[in-house]
Design a protein around this nucleic acid. Sequence first.
RNA 1: GCGCCCAUAGCUCAGCUGGAUAGAGCAACGGACUUCUAAUCCGUAGGUCGGAGGUUCGAAUCCUCCUGGGCGUACCA
Length: 661
Amino acid sequence: MPAMNILQELKQRFQATLTQLVDDPSAELEMIRPAQDARFGDYQANCAMPLGKKLGKPPRDVAQQIVEQLDLNDLCDNPEIAGPGFINLRLLDDWIQTQLQHSVSDERLGVTPTASPRTYIIDFSSPNVAKPMHVGHIRSTVIGDSLCRIFRFLGHQVISDNHLGDWGTQFGMIIYGYRNFALSEAYEQEPVQELGRVYRVVRGIMDHYDALDRQPVVAQRIAQLQTEVEQAERQAEEETEKAAKKKATKACKKLRGQLNEAVAEQKSLSQKIEKAADNPEFAERLAAHKTIRDDVLAETAKLHSGDPENLQLWKEFLPKCRDEIERVYNRLQVSFDEELGESFYHDRLKAVVDDLQAKGLATESEGATCVFLDGFEAPMIVRKKDGAFLYATTDLATLQYRVERWSPDAILYVVDFRQSDHFDKLFAAARRWGIENVELRHVEFGTVLGEDGKPFKTRAGDTVGLESLLDAAVERAAQVVNDNDDAKPQGAELSTAQRQEIADVVGHAAIKYADLSQNRASDYVYSEDKMVALRGNTATYLQYSYARVQSIFARGGIDIESLRQGNGTISIAHEKERALALQLLRFSEALTEVEVDYRPNHLTNYLYELATLFSGFFEACPVIKADTPELRDSRALLCDLVARTLKIGLSLLGIQVVEKM
RNA sequence: GCGCCCAUAGCUCAGCUGGAUAGAGCAACGGACUUCUAAUCCGUAGGUCGGAGGUUCGAAUCCUCCUGGGCGUACCA
């Protein structure tokens, strides 16, 4: 008998019965679900209530009718009808045992590959190669990578594509910086560091001039806001009607808030500018590069128009920049099938715009070439008035290329939700352009916020580099590993090298899990403490559970391989065993939940619950000292299934396990 | 102004397409290591699911309005 998804099996059993009551029972089938509360059994069917309404019968009668016609004898106890018409189902221990027994010898733990495989292109990570990666890049990278792994495991074809920013203004900055600030010796020895340094130098000067420009604007805004605040205050004062007064007071408060913000910005601008005055070297640079912003744009434009020298520099820098981000990907164990960056599409952009124009989709407006779309206030601009293309253009070209090359069923963009407007337009434009029969989906996620609750800004100056965060997590993990090993009852058992390796795995896992376990739609307040936490619902807890199982096998001298080969039988007796067994059988349900709406946190929730149930089992059900050899074998096999489910489950999140902790 | 999103325990968050008495972790308090790893477990306490209406047999979940916050909004990505 093949292993199966319990929910699917139940739905199949219900289908025959429900078809007799309604033409299309799919909605009713969806109302079969895991029980919310153990008192109601394992699963519940909630379809009798709406059916009662539809058929004009009392729901409990409908439930009774369904139950009488159901053939579940090999699967469940007699269904119970409760409350207004809930049908409560409790699986037979025998059936659970049989199912689990199958998982024992199944590499996929009873998860059958999908019957309808699709081709997915998953676009994620996509950093600017010239800038160091920071915490803001984690979400896309980690969520996208996990989705790739999960969809592959489910039997879909997945093409992961890193749409690198490798053709933008950053390269104009690096080229400019290289020409003006690079030290040849440093560049020869450590090119990436040196390019990073000159990038920051250029950035610093540009920021300074931006700040200088911004200062009068802010000053003017402050003046204006002050007047407005005074006006609003007067109005609030004079207003006699209650509701209007309240409204005026509120408007007043809002304006004050804006004023405070502007004042704060002014302060930060002056600080930035004063800092330059204190630094003679920087002041000298400022004086020598007064037109830096235009010059950088000019370098970028030259690159884009095929200037041989700039192109040559770009070709020289690009691999070095890519090596740099590759190092981070290696640490994160993330890889891509394709890394077709913006530059790959450069020579296709003109054709895209020409085609849009030829088809009457793009028109000139205020000098720019625009696609106007129903339901959108602003058009999608595909060519600026200076002739340059934009990311909308690149995204259209990319979409076209992907559809032509792979004929995917779906393209997922794992990108910050702030770009949702862009993707709405992109997808709308693509449809009008004739791209059909492909699911286009912005898998959006919340913004990474700073400690102040405001969006984490790269250019704020005090960016937290991604690598330093990883280092911090590993360091904290090392501390815990050391303490724990030292405190073991039988004495420490790990070498320094082992400890280091464990800390490495645990630390990186902590970062990834912190992100994956959160609903991706929520904003994410960046907190190092939270991200490197090693207690509660964390990867560490799951890894610990895995290591505990291995420890049982090691200490008990249990030959788990031989048990798997058929020398052991699972039998469910204890309540904790049953709860654990049932959870083990639900692995595929958890993966299906991820699949439905691209939410890896459903998998982390499942694994956390599994580990929690295992801990309960661990406390209550001794393995090595079980009463009988049969019980010992049965429990060992349960432990093994827990460990294997954790290992595979974590691997689908891009997280490793260790044998000892 | 217009559009999108969010509001759940002191804090950080789960809660799948509407289901029965809303759940975790952290923090607090009280217990459990001569017994397979205490990175653990058990227990206590903590809630007007922002507010008001509505739809429904049933609403944290769907609809409307209100309040508070975030983001986006014509040539950055």
